[in-house]
Simulated scan of single mutants.
Amino acid sequence: MNKLSYQRGVGLIEVLVAVLLLSIAVLGFSALQVRAISATDESVVRTKSLTIIRNLAEVMRAYPEAYVKNGTAPPFESILSTEFSDLTAAERAAVVSTIQAVVSSSATDSVVISYVKTNSDDTKTTISKTVSVDATGENCLSTTTKTVGGKIVPKQTCTINELAARDALMIKKQAADQGITINIETCPGSAANAIQQQMCVITAWNGTKAILDDTDAAACAGANGTYKAGSQCLISEAY
């Protein structure tokens, strides 16, 4: 006589194995989603950084003669009244572009630009003006006017350094609003010449510092411009 056996239902072991396989698949899919989201976020930040770098490079080209004596009192003193060739080697070393000085400084909303004005009697007067992002107050970017010879003209006019400072502040604020830090340094290997030198625009995010430093583990790159492992930043050359 043939004996027939029938299996009814599913055993506990089969259920546990099925749940285990499903869990592994779900975990793998979740990890893939996390990586995809992280890659998307990284791509968005890089796109924003490239836009900021491109805008800043255009601003640097727009003000090729905007230079200040950095590290003096007041912080941003124009050299427009002095020929660069007349400066000593030490003075030349302290001269940087206004864009670089503003971007690399701690200034966020406003800076004071000073310059020496030569009067009609050959005496000199130091003029200081506050340049801000929103052009508030009585600075050169204010919208107030005055009447001269029957014509309405701006009450105050901007020097090239003041215009450069304002544009630099605007780009710096745009970067900060996106969680991006920005800095400008002399590119590794560039000639030590403060005029028309090769500059590197550095943007960094997620804890990476926008600097070129061999000793700082959080720096974007080393002093030779080589990216550090794990750094989240971009370096672009500008002139």
Rank of each mutant, 00 (worst) to 15 (best):
A176C: 00
L80I: 04
F84I: 12
T186M: 04
S105C: 02
N55C: 01
N193T: 11
A165T: 11
V131D: 04
M60R: 15
V59A: 15
V68R: 02
G149F: 10
E65A: 05
G179C: 02
A57I: 06
Y239C: 02
A210K: 02
T123W: 08
T159S: 14
T181P: 00
L16M: 08
S120F: 11
E58P: 00
Y6W: 13
A101L: 03
A218F: 04
K228M: 10
S110Y: 10
S236N: 10
T136F: 12
A101W: 02
P64Y: 03
V19H: 04
G71S: 09
G137F: 07
I127F: 05
V68T: 02
I127Q: 12
K124I: 11
R92L: 13
L87Q: 09
N139V: 00
V153S: 08
T226N: 14
N193R: 04
E83I: 01
F29Q: 09
T208Q: 04
A107E: 12
S142Q: 13
G137E: 07
E138C: 09
A165L: 10
F84C: 11
K117G: 00
V102P: 08
T82P: 00
A73K: 11
I235Y: 03
T145Q: 12
N206L: 04
S190I: 05
I13G: 03
I13K: 05
K173S: 11
A90F: 11
T130V: 13
